[in-house]
Simulated scan of single mutants.
Amino acid sequence: MTDVRAHIRQGVHGALHVRAWPHPAPRYLALLVHGYGEHAGRYDEVAGVLTGHGAAVYAPDHLGHGRSAGERAVIGDFEDVVTDLHTAADLARAEHTGLPLVMVGHSMGGLIAARYAQRYGSELSALVLSGPVVGTWALPGRLLALDEIPDVPISPAALSRDPAVGAAYAADPLVWHGPMKRPTLLAFERGLAAVAAGGDLGDLPLLWLHGEDDRLVPVEGSRTGVERLGAGRATERVFPGARHEVFNETDRAKVFAELTGFLDSVLG
């Protein structure tokens, strides 16, 4: 997509870069919440689907990610990232007053979006979680138990069965290709605990999308968190054979159809 705008706002810890995909006459707002080590620019195709569906789309680069401030891939407290996300939502609402707001969070962004919904759920009309880090996720504890965290980046092949996705990820200079850092792992543990203790989302419509072959955030670990958040009312779609990034998978047309169909059912 070529019609993309950049905004800079003051975040909790410095400059917050917010990407915006405009719509001339939107019927709703969509806020995209990216995952660990990546950035909002990787969501052009998702944004294109949503603008084609009638949304004005916004997505911040989180603290320590993309073009936003902070040490690369370091998040000390996810509550600060949720506050930054609220700043991005305020930007969207200021530019388009009175429209319903939906949130789409992927992976780490699912954790952030879930916590946002617990803190600001009355502002949302729907929540979509893709491969979300909620519920049980063993990786932080496993790495924190080591004296030294190994310098092993995320494998591009774990993202999608489409090799072009992995190649683009590996070549992207805004993606963090180094090891996970101890402060971020500790923040993950606290963030998971905060979401677990934060209660369910009441009547907020919730769609959960996940790849059956997701080895980065296994589906069964997320299920416990989604069931708690949705109090048994979440809409679940698990895609056979899909890996971690269902929006970048070989069958992503089906994923996008589930996304827009769900939003139609919520927004009318």
Rank of each mutant, 00 (worst) to 15 (best):
M1D: 03
D3V: 04
V4E: 15
V4Q: 14
R5F: 05
I8K: 01
Q10T: 11
G11M: 06
G11H: 05
G14R: 07
R19T: 15
P22K: 03
A25L: 02
A25P: 10
Y28G: 15
L29W: 03
L31P: 07
H34L: 05
H34R: 09
G37F: 09
G37P: 07
H39L: 02
A40K: 10
A40T: 09
V46H: 00
V49N: 13
L50Q: 12
L50C: 14
T51I: 15
T51D: 07
G52D: 10
A55F: 11
V57C: 13
Y58R: 00
D61H: 07
D61K: 01
L63H: 15
G66T: 14
G66E: 13
R72M: 04
R72K: 08
R72N: 03
V74D: 07
V74I: 14
I75D: 01
G76H: 04
G76M: 03
D77F: 09
F78D: 06
V81N: 09
V82A: 10
T87L: 05
T87Y: 00
A88Q: 04
L91T: 01
A92S: 05
E95S: 10
T97Y: 08
V102M: 01
M103C: 08
S107D: 04
L111G: 00
I112M: 03
A113E: 11
A113K: 04
A114F: 03
A114N: 03
Q118L: 10
E123F: 00
E123G: 08
V128S: 04
S130H: 05
G131P: 14
P132G: 00
P132E: 00
L139S: 02
L139E: 12
L143D: 10
A145M: 06
L146Y: 04
L146I: 14
E148F: 13
E148H: 12
I149N: 11
D151M: 07
V152L: 12
P156D: 10
A157K: 12
L159G: 15
V165E: 09
V165F: 07
A168I: 03
A170D: 14
A170R: 14
A171M: 08
D172P: 13
H177D: 02
K181E: 15
R182W: 05
R182N: 13
L185M: 11
L185V: 11
L186K: 06
L186T: 08
A187Q: 14
F188E: 08
F188P: 10
E189D: 07
E189M: 10
L192S: 09
A193N: 05
V195G: 09
A196Y: 00
A196W: 02
G198E: 14
G198T: 14
G199I: 00
L206G: 07
G211I: 01
G211H: 13
D213Y: 06
R215D: 12
E220L: 08
E220T: 06
E220C: 00
G225A: 14
G230R: 00
R233D: 02
A234N: 06
T235Q: 11
F239A: 12
P240S: 01
G241L: 13
G241K: 06
R243I: 12
R243A: 10
H244C: 12
H244S: 12
V246P: 11
V246G: 05
N248W: 06
E249A: 06
T250V: 15
V255Q: 06
A257N: 05
A257Y: 02
F262T: 09
L263P: 11
S265A: 15
V266T: 14
L267C: 14
